[in-house]
């Protein structure tokens, strides 16, 4: 078995995750990228998107609300202003957030600033819901 890479997910509220895993796949602003042990030093902005990591046969998912990732050969550090593991997401809350965001989006068509914020909120809510579904579906990782 190849060497494992240490994945750390840090948010302002806590160290969400610190775990040795085989593969990390994150959503950068320019698309998804995967990281294995021994990756060259790498820094990327993260879009609002999912983070998945595989340890043995088990794949877990997390929702990242934007941030960035720093990769060194042995370690991946994800800095995100908000992040949740799939199993910790409150699906009802995400659904309510989506409804709210949709309403606001409809109202705020004219104001550019509010529109962008509402859109980001909608993206986050949809992401959380998607991540939960994937997490429960389980293990279907390429």
């Amino acid at each position: 078995m190849a060497n494992k890479i240490l994945l750390e997910v840090v948010t302002p509220d806590k160290l969400l995750l610190s775990k040795e895993v085989d593969v990390v796949v994150a959503t950068g602003v320019d698309g998804e990228f995967g990281v294995l042990y021994g990756h060259v030093p790498f820094l990327s902005s993260l879009a609002i998107g999912e983070l998945r990591f595989k340890d043995g046969n088990q794949t877990e998912f997390a929702a990242i609300s934007g941030g960035f990732a720093e990769v060194t050969g042995k370690k991946v550090t994800v800095l995100a202003e908000a992040a949740e593991l799939a199993r910790e997401i409150d699906i009802d809350r995400a659904k309510r957030a989506r409804e709210r965001a949709e309403q606001r989006l409809a109202q705020a068509q004219q104001e550019a600033m509010d529109y962008a914020r509402a859109e980001a909120a909608l993206k986050r809510a949809m992401l959380r819901m998607r991540v939960v579904e994937r997490g429960i579906g389980g293990g279907g990782m390429a």
Binding site: F42, S44, S45, F68, T72, E81
Partner: peptide
């Protein structure tokens, strides 16, 4: 000691980073 490969460019990441840095300072 670490020379990063960056994606997108360092400048673009900085654009993304700086407003967030402000949040960190205020928090």
């Amino acid at each position: 000691g670490l020379e990063y490969i960056t994606e997108p460019s360092a400048e673009e990441i900085l654009v993304d980073l700086l407003p967030r840095y402000l949040n960190v300072r205020v928090y």
